[in-house]
Design a protein around this nucleic acid. Structure first.
Lengths: 344, 344
DNA sequence: TTGAAAGCGCTAACAG
DNA sequence: CTGTTAGCGCTTTCAA
């Protein structure tokens, strides 16, 4: 009665069934050079008849695992979902499978996840907005093909894809200035690691804000609250700003989630948006578009970012020695109902 | 000058360095029985001195990969992020690593991801709100320890964790009825696979709605728009409902995202919430709490759901033959500002 | 308690 | 074009 206890089909079973060598099967699997069409056919038939699926561990032991690891710092940020879509869209159709490493808040957790992926023989890594020190990224990239997303700065070991945050910040400042605002404040994510100052998007957005303000002759209106890119950070930042002797008439929040917190503080202060004060975010996350929110925000073309990252990674897996590339994409401004001319 | 081209450290290197056998190293790695404390110490020191990390592919070829695969249907639904948090919280501290399979919209994509995970030798699988036919789930669970989250129905091969959707729906109906509503409509996700009718949360929520309405003597007020659990679905559903000869005074959306779409339709119709019409969602997602939204919603205790799923999976990995468990958690209602008494 | 040795399923030299 | 064979790094009998 009992068949053999349902051992998983291996390449040996396929070879036997097709009456060929295991080498032949292996070659067919990898579309390798040097198999006659007749053998191709025989092997493919055996594969589908037996329902054979290659064991990734065994493949990994010899060569590739056909797996790409994606490190995602915060699954809650819908912007990352966008990136992921672009990414998987580009990978689908290839022989690779994408797996995500979750819950990487903090540098230690991030390192843990990255190393877990390396241990698992990932053929390539896409690190989205990593906070690790640059030296660590370089070390990782020396081990396995890596693309870093959302970090500025040029590396000779990994490729990068990033949004032009300098331009993004200017987009917001100019929009508000055009509406007539002069006192435009900014809530930034305080950069604790000096090492990353020149590379992290938050730092660049703040710098872009300063430059754009000066370029518009609004140097006097520069006012920065330094907190974090969280709802709490937005709340506290806005509270600080609203307590100024002369209140800003507009707030540029460094991220949409920050804008949400700011809205809380503004409502608490009895002010209304955009009549009394304008507010703009960054990321154009899903909820920015929700009708009750309708937040003016900078759109980062997450889909393109993801697609580019995937393309670069596949290219690098194919040729590890090719020079690294730096892709920079241009953001656009999506104007909604939280920005309007300042009160008269 | 050039050291050996930086080959990865293996168990053999460790064994040589510690002057013991590879068997000994292997045993220490797995905390296996039968190693003297002295040898333990020697091996551990060698491991840390050399910075050795086990190769998961090689381990997987013989035994376990120390990897748990989580299938997540929609990374955009913040409720799943909650589940994931509970899950990783419970796994952290064990020797296991969680990896996520992304982008599984549709039954085919779901099957592809699940099989990719099996091919990669995952020690266990957590399937969150899968849409696969039950038979397929059973087949998967026969291959590898599996916990199914968010699907009702009892299986002898996999464990389940689910929210009590019947109660959740009743919570909403009773809240609205207590406020004085009699015409409470519902927007459901249309269940296309009859196979799943009795198992899918969306179907159960709809049934819970019907039962609760009848229990409150509001059978006449039952009115269901059948669309999908998306923003678009909410918009279309609400449009249908608002076009009724007698308009409902409240809408129970089967998911928060559905409520967002419904708000669009309501605003378009020139109505205001909650003065003209009340609306409630389900999932208590992050954005439900955002001030401009302030959506009344059912909280599913996603964190507990995830933690329970992880616990059950670890238990099952430890003992595959133990009887399956079904955990059902009770939701609570979070009342915010989108529900109020009906217009006089 | 310790170690030698035989694989796990696959790929890649290398020979035929 | 096809097959034989030797490992990849680890776990696991099985002897010592």
């Amino acid at each position: 009665m009992d068949e053999a206890p349902s051992r998983r089909i291996t390449i040996v079973d396929v070879a036997r069934h097709a009456q060929v060598s295991t080498t032949a099967v292996s070659k067919v699997l990898r579309n390798a050079y040097g198999v006659s069409p007749k053998m191709q056919a025989k092997v493919r038939q055996a594969i589908s008849e037996l329902g054979y699926r290659p064991n990734a561990s065994a493949r990994g032991l010899r060569g590739r695992t056909y797996t790409i690891g994606v490190m995602l710092p915060d699954i809650r940020n819908p912007f990352f979902a966008e990136v992921l879509d672009g990414l998987t869209g580009r990978i689908a159709g290839t022989e690779y499978q994408v797996l995500l490493g979750p819950g990487c808040n903090g540098e230690d957790a991030e390192a843990r996840v990255i190393h877990a992926m390396i241990d698992r023989g990932m053929d390539g890594l896409i690190l989205i907005a990593p906070i690790s020190a640059r030296a660590h990224l370089e070390r990782v990239a020396a081990l396995v093909p890596t693309v870093v997303v959302g970090r500025h700065g040029h590396s000779h070991t990994y490729d990068t894809v990033a949004d032009d945050d300098l331009t993004g910040a200017a987009l917001v400042v100019n929009h508000l200035a055009d509406l007539g605002h002069r006192r435009i404040a900014h809530i930034e994510h305080h950069e604790s690691t000096p090492d990353c100052l020149a590379e992290m998007p938050n730092a660049i957005r703040a710098e872009g804000y300063r430059r754009a303000m000066r370029a518009r002759g609004l140097a006097d209106g520069i006012d920065i609250a330094s907190t974090t890119y969280t709802q709490e950070g937005g709340y506290l930042g806005a509270k600080q700003l609203l307590a100024r002797p002369v209140r800003p008439t507009a707030i540029f929040a460094g991220a949409d989630i920050v804008a949400m917190g700011a809205l809380d503080a503004i409502a608490e202060a009895g002010l209304s948006v955009p009549t009394d004060i304008s507010i703009a975010g960054y990321d154009n996350t899903t909820f920015a578009a929700f009708r009750p929110i309708s937040l003016t925000s900078v759109d980062q073309a997450g889909h393109e970012i993801g697609a580019n990252a995937a393309r670069l990674l596949l290219d690098r897996i194919a040729d590890r020695s090719r020079p690294t590339a730096q892709v920079k994409l241009s953001p656009t401004l999506v104007v909604r109902r939280t920005t309007a001319p300042p009160p008269a």
